[in-house]
């Protein structure tokens, strides 16, 4: 179990973009430990805290982005994607809808991978392509990142098209339009909204529990 002090030191290392200290703190944990024992004590609380600090205007997006990237790099090195110690989970994917702004998607990918989850990255796609890929890959949790209001509104069409085809993945949305209009995620039929990349961790965890409860 890590102390609050260790989390603070790790957090400071991430915010100051000090890869050396951040890496040393993770590597010094038991190298044979399961993923959950590596990421839960330090990575998840630090990234979640950084998300909260960004919401409060205390840290910048550049720090959020670099923190996620540093954690992802270190975790990928310690536990490659095929490592059996990664989290067993339902099929999950992320996409940017109708846009070429990738930052939000990149940050969510980083924090989820750094937290032990694997997800397919569909890149920038239009609604029809997204529906096809979700059907093809039998995605159970779909994360959609948007920057512009029109793209955010098109999540509804994606959801409706998937439902018409009998496919009902849980949809998590994120991006500026949803942060500036707290009701928008419900309006477009999403199951959850992540205000920050790190909030995606707790949302994905809760949705996996929901899916597990459904299948029991």
């Amino acid at each position: 179990m890590q102390t609050q002090d260790s989390i603070e030191v790790f957090l400071d290392a991430l915010l100051s973009m000090d890869r050396v200290v951040a890496r040393r703190m993770l590597v010094d944990l038991n190298p044979e430990a399961a993923l959950i024992d590596i990421v839960e004590p330090l990575v998840v609380p630090a990234l979640e805290r950084i998300g909260v600090l960004w919401e409060q205007g205390e840290v910048s997006l550049s720090q959020v982005y670099m923190s996620g990237r540093i954690c992802e790099e270190i975790i990928d090195e310690l536990l490659p994607a095929c490592d059996l110690r990664r989290i067993d989970q339902p099929a999950m994917a992320i996409a940017v809808l109708d846009d070429h702004h990738f930052l939000g998607k990149r940050m969510v990918c980083s924090v989820l991978r750094a937290s032990g989850y694997e997800l397919k990255d569909y890149g920038a796609v239009d609604g029809r392509t997204l529906v096809e890929r979700v059907m093809r890959d039998q995605i159970r949790i779909l994360l959609i990142s948007t920057l512009m209001l029109p793209s955010a509104l098109r999540v509804r069409a994606v959801k409706d098209a998937l439902e018409r085809m009998g496919c009902r993945p849980l949809i998590v949305v994120g991006g500026a339009p949803f942060r500036f209009d707290a009701e928008l995620w419900r309006e477009v039929g999403a199951d959850a909204m992540a205000g920050t990349a790190a909030e995606g961790i707790s949302i994905v965890r809760a949705l996996i529990e929901r899916l597990t409860a459904r299948s029991d």
Partner: peptide, 9 residues
């Protein structure tokens, strides 16, 4: 904006 980069940056 401090939303994007730190005041120091």
């Amino acid at each position: 904006s401090p939303t994007i980069v730190t005041p120091g940056e």
